[in-house]
Design a protein around this nucleic acid. Structure first.
Length: 801
RNA sequence: GCGGGAGUGGCGGAAUGGCAGACGCGCUGGUCUUAGGAGCCAGUUCUCCGGAGUGUGGGUUCAAGUCCCAUCUCCCGCACCA
């Protein structure tokens, strides 16, 4: 008989809601557990089947923790500022706030239909003024500490829409919406100095338990490199400083390159004989889109600067200086020394412009290609460095540079400061006013939140300013400092802002005096287990760690790191193995799955689909197996017998299963935990019945995975109380081993026989039994045993000659 | 190009260096049935029945899907970072 999942699931969701059973308490004397999943962006498309994979996983952990006696915080909220909502609002002339509310309602009812044990009392929404008040407050603290500043920055500009685009809106070098060309335009932008935290963001990864691939991508993203800044004198009489990771190759530097945006072009204007050509190249480079730049990676371009030469500090040789767009103004000093013999890009450039290539590390064929893989090589053609290893030369040259005052060791990071402005409506207003007299002045904290004004149109202006710029009543204000006329900042914050601290707000979501009470933060933080997608392992994770560290520095939080443990789930792909998308027509709608099979089956299937950390294709037939399993668990009710202890024939199977499920949940091995329960059910079914004790244990283990059906059975059988409030099942380690074990007997690694022996047999007894086995005896007859390997409880391997 | 991950039955996937293919799907046969796209039972890597099998080629080991070296393919992220 099939069970009526629709009715049962609704019933229990209502009961849990009414009784508030999953609320975290403010009793700070209890042991706490903070489980966190990334709060979703409530898009108009509704929940994706990928969302519940993460949510169910930590729901299982949370439910288990509650059964283990922890005060569990498992919250949910909405990362609701953002472009799709704004674009939808523009297109349909609906206020983004209304769009957001509709989307949130839909998402919330979808999540509720899955029976996730979120504490809905602590729901947060980044677009709520009571929330973004504190996002703005954090920004003000950053500003006060000099970590927020304004800077001229190149931004993406759609030539057709005439507006600024976020990087995410630029797809393949063209505008995501209209498909026209995107170019760079310089605008003044708010920046956050995340680079000041670069080293700590690397170092403190040692303090946390993140899966390795997450740590690795964080480290790679920050991109630390060690080298030296070297001062090259020029014939213009000034000094051009370059950054290099290979100061040891200085004797091989045969030319220099500066970025097209380098300020020295202005400085040298009078001396440059081909200034027109240089300026023309610079204009071309500025016009190039990112797309073109990357397309042309292989084909180096550039112009030689006529009239100024660089002087190599190690040998006094004059070398030419070029401008080329392969040198970026945003990294290092915007200028490089080129060593074509040992750098592929320099080599390509040197070949094209017919520049000398001087080998300084032995071992390559530098006329054929750049010899870059030379860290173990020996220096040549390098005067006082000759004969040294690369490693030794690096040390010696750094000392030499410092002694001569021509340079110093230097660490650089690929990480750039965070561009924090968006010329958009649907984001947190930046709480700064600009006064002619006083400059950028922070809004007094008492004036927070600075709420978004009503506007008629959400579209960016022709000049690329935020739609807020059109609201002159709002823009024109008085300076909080001098009282004179001033203008409000019209840019808003990026979507990353609200999500950089949301886990703090959950600790105390309704606080009006602080982002959260100190004792609440001290009790709940750090987050004990944070799970989310790999797509957020660089930006979101880095940004929120940065903010947390800053708040730690100013005493708001008491831990240097926000998340003690970070794991990541794989994507759920469409049935054809491709990423789910409307255009591919392979989208699975979670509502339909819940409607057809129920939430418990859906949850179970998403956990059973494969290795939690890897991506897996959806299968509309495999899910039936999970439904069948639950049906069989339900039907076990018809075969229930008395008995408050495991029956002897099931004792070991029960204990082993409990142990396995208990351990697997902690290791993200939900798929094998479920397989274990399925196998256990098969064992129970083989006996023709189930007793109370066995059934209770099975239901308790299964409850975090399939909370509704198990709760219903528990109630129908009158097992007492609510199942979710029972104690987690224990196991007896001594009862996890069978009395007899099958020992495999191998001859030189090939299986030749199997023996059933008591588990406590001695090595001698097992070996004797193996040799006595008729098949083995025949095979080893007349041969010498060279080696006997015995793996307790598993196998015997005999090596004979 | 750089970084990360993965290659195991028809499919999703299991396997602290120790019995490869747990568990599930699908399929085959049986049973029950007016009926079965329900339930239950049995079987299901290939095989010339000796064996052979974890992308390919080497190696270490008593023993390799697992460790080492080389190589191929696929997926994801970054993309001239000096």
């Amino acid at each position: 008989m099939n069970y009526n999942f629709a009715q049962i699931e609704k019933k229990w969701q209502d009961i849990w809601d009414a009784k508030n059973v999953f609320a975290a308490t403010d009793d700070y004397s209890k042991p706490k557990y903070y489980a966190l999943v990334e709060f979703p962006y409530p898009s108009g498309k509704g929940l994706h089947v990928g969302h519940p994979r993460s949510y169910t996983a930590l729901d299982i952990v949370s439910r288990k923790r509650r059964m283990e006696g922890y005060n569990v915080l498992y919250p949910m909220g909405w990362d609701a500022f953002g472009l799709p909502t704004e674009n939808f609002a523009i297109k349909n002339h609906i206020h983004p706030e209304i769009v957001t509310r509709q989307n949130v309602d839909r998402f919330k009812s979808q999540l509720k239909s899955l029976g996730l044990s979120f504490d809905w009392n602590r729901e947060v929404n980044t677009t709520d003024p009571n929330y973004y008040k504190w996002t703005q407050w954090i920004f003000l603290q950053l500003f006060k500490k000099g970590l927020a500043y304004k800077k001229e920055m190149s931004v993406n500009w759609c030539t057709s829409c005439k507006c600024v685009l976020a990087n995410e809106e630029v797809v393949g070098g063209v505008c995501e919406r209209c498909g026209s060309e995107v170019v760079h335009k310089v605008k003044s932008q708010w920046m956050l100095k995340i680079t000041a935290y670069a080293q700590r963001l690397i170092d403190d990864l040692e303090k946390v338990d993140y899966i390795d691939r997450v740590k690795t991508s964080q480290i790679n993203w920050i991109g630390r490199s060690t080298g030296a800044e070297v001062d090259f004198a020029t014939t213009a009489g000034d000094v051009l400083t370059v950054y290099t990771t290979r100061p040891d190759t200085l004797f091989g530097a045969t030319y220099m390159v500066i970025s097209p945006e380098h300020p020295y072009i202005e400085k040298w204007a009078d001396r440059i004989e081909n200034l027109d050509k240089i300026k023309e190249y610079r204009a071309e480079a500025a016009k190039k889109s990112d797309f073109e730049r990357t397309e042309l990676v292989k084909d180096k371009t550039g112009v030689k600067i006529e009239g100024v030469m660089g002087i190599n500090p190690v040998n006094g040789k004059e070398i030419p200086i070029f401008i080329s767009d392969y040198v970026l103004m945003t990294y290092g000093t915007g200028a490089i020394m080129a060593v074509p013999a040992h750098d592929t890009r320099d080599w390509d450039f040197a070949k094209k412009f017919d520049l000398p290539i001087i080998e300084v590390v032995k071992g390559g064929q530098v006329e054929e290609e750049a010899f870059t893989d030379c860290e173990t090589g020996i220096m040549v053609n390098s005067d006082f460095l000759d004969g040294l290893t690369v490693e030794e030369a690096k040390g010696k040259i750094k000392t030499w540079l410092e002694e001569k005052g021509k340079g110093h060791a230097k660490v650089n990071y690929k990480l750039r400061d965070w561009v924090f402005s968006r010329q958009r409506y649907w984001g947190e207003p930046i709480p700064i006013v600009h006064c002619e007299k006083c400059g950028y002045v922070p809004l007094p904290e008492s004036e927070l939140p600075l709420t978004l004004p009503e506007v008629d149109s959400y579209e960016p202006t022709e000049s690329g300013e935020s739609p807020l710029a059109k609201m002159t009543d709002w823009v024109n204000t008085t300076c909080p400092h001098c009282g004179g006329p001033a203008k409000r900042e019209t840019d808003t914050m990026p979507q990353w802002a609200g999500s950089s601290w949301y886990f703090m707000r959950y600790c105390d979501p309704n606080n009006n005096d602080a982002l959260a009470a100190k004792e609440a933060l001290d009790y709940w933080l750090p987050v004990d287990w944070y799970n989310g997608g790999m797509e957020h392992t660089t930006l979101h994770l880095l940004y929120s760690r940065f903010w947390h560290k800053f708040l730690y520095d100013i005493g708001v939080v008491s831990t240097p790191e926000p998340y003690a443990k970070r794991t990541s789930h794989g994507m759920i792909l469409g049935e054809n193995g491709e990423k789910m998308s409307k255009s591919r027509g392979n989208v699975v709608n979670p509502d339909e799955i819940v409607g057809e099979y129920g939430a418990d089956t859906m949850r179970l299937y998403e956990m059973f689909i494969g290795d939690f950390e890897k991506s897996a294709p959806w299968s509309s037939s495999s899910i039936k197996g999970c439904k069948r399993f639950l049906d069989r668990v339900w039907n076990l009710q018809e075969h229930l017998t008395d008995g408050e202890a495991y029956r002897p024939e099931l004792e070991i199977a029960m204990n082993k299963a409990v142990k396995k499920v208990t351990e697997d949940i902690e290791q993200l091995k939900f798929n094998t935990a479920i397989a274990t329960m399925m196998a256990l059910l098969n064992d129970i079914a083989d006996t023709g019945c189930v007793n109370h004790r066995e059934y209770k244990a099975l239901l308790t283990m299964l409850n975090p995975f399939a909370p509704h059906i198990t709760e219903e059975i528990w109630e129908q059988q009158g097992f007492g109380g609510m199942l979710n409030q029972q104690k987690w099942v224990g196991f007896d380690p001594d009862k996890c081993v069978e009395a007899t074990v099958e020992i495999v007997v191998q001859l030189a690694g090939k299986i030749k026989a199997r023996l059933n022996l008591p588990a406590d047999s001695s090595k001698e007894a097992v070996l004797a039994a193996a040799k006595a086995d008729s098949a083995i005896a025949a095979l080893i007859d007349g041969k010498t045993i060279l080696k006997e390997i015995y793996v307790p409880g598993k196998l015997v391997n005999l090596v004979v000659k």
